[in-house]
């Protein structure tokens, strides 16, 4: 996160409840502190907020439009409403909008919120535009299924300024035609991609999937409920990156890294992310 959190406390009101948060904290942090759950899509704890999905919007007294809670710093005396008619409406519409054009079937959290807010993606004009992208399987490490892409920018951030500084992908095009893309949509092996998989790790909808997961899903054998997750340390260089090994049937099926670890902040390199299959 870009914000500097100091010890000075700021008190704001969330749904009538006074909460004190450190200076530099966001409204979202204050909602968390107040025990108010907030839907998020583009927000990631290790990423600079881009506030593009707008699902975390809240009503702020004195502000004409709703404000994104993930990026708006909490200021002394703010009065915030997270469950007003306007907030519920905009959140519902964002979830509804996404479901009209994107395959959100593997975005579990999104689905739960859509249900919570009563989103009804079926009430739109039949035959409307959708993402309509083929699955890109270009190597054996991860796949890109942009039918599932909600354009949250998280992969772009993880590939770029927020972690990896590789910039293999960007948003290309404009409006509804905007897509995450390499230059001229060249394949990943022809791009700058270094296969750190940090984009996959931050994708909220499974548009980016490890190939192992993709293959198991194709075989209808992806069983998260049967998986264990074990935290350990990478076996390669001496940096000490923490790994979370996801194991199904005594086989490692994917590898992630904890967001709250000082060294990795959720990130890995190609070796740590993919170099485990000798086990």
């Amino acid at each position: 996160m870009s914000s500097v959190i100091t010890e000075t406390a700021v008190t704001i009101q969330v749904d009538g409840q006074e909460v004190a948060v450190p200076e530099g904290a966001t409204i979202l942090d204050a909602c968390d502190a107040a025990g108010v759950e907030t839907p998020t899509i583009c927000y990631g704890p290790t990423l600079t907020p881009v506030n593009v999905c707008r699902v975390c919007v809240v009503e702020l007294d004195g502000s004409r439009a709703l404000v994104p809670s993930c990026s708006r710093p909490a200021e002394e005396g703010m009065v915030v409403h997270t469950d007003s008619e306007r907030v519920r409406h905009s959140r519902k519409m964002v979830l509804e909008f996404l479901a009209t054009g994107v395959d959100v079937s593997q975005a579990d959290e999104l689905g739960q919120w859509a249900e919570h807010y009563g989103a009804d993606p079926d009430r739109y004009v039949p035959g409307g535009e959708t993402m309509d992208e083929p699955v890109r399987v270009q190597d054996n490490l991860y796949i890109r299924d942009y039918d599932k892409c909600v354009l949250c920018y998280r992969c772009v951030e993880a590939c770029g300024d927020d972690a990896q500084h590789t910039y293999a992908i960007s948003v290309a095009g404009r409006g509804f035609g905007a897509r995450i893309s390499t230059e001229f949509d060249v394949t990943l092996p022809d791009s700058a991609c270094v296969y750190c998989g940090n984009c996959v790790a931050v994708c909220p909808t499974n548009a980016l999937q490890f190939k192992t997961e993709f293959d198991l899903r194709q075989a209808d054998d992806w069983r998260p409920e049967d998986q264990t997750v074990t935290q350990t340390v990478c076996s390669y260089c001496g940096v000490g990156c923490n790994l979370e090994l996801h194991v199904q049937d005594n086989q490692i099926v994917k590898c992630t890294s904890p967001d709250d670890h000082d060294v990795t902040k959720g990130n890995l390199c190609i070796k740590g992310r993919f170099g485990w299959n000798y086990v």
């Binding site: 296969y195 260089c237 070796k271 170099g275 299959n277 000798y278």
Partner: peptide
């Protein structure tokens, strides 16, 4: 980037690099 020492471990995965 994609390999490690004598490749005993890293040689076992399919690196495009």
């Amino acid at each position: 980037l994609d390999s490690y020492n004598t490749g005993v471990q890293s040689g076992k995965y399919d690196s495009p690099l």
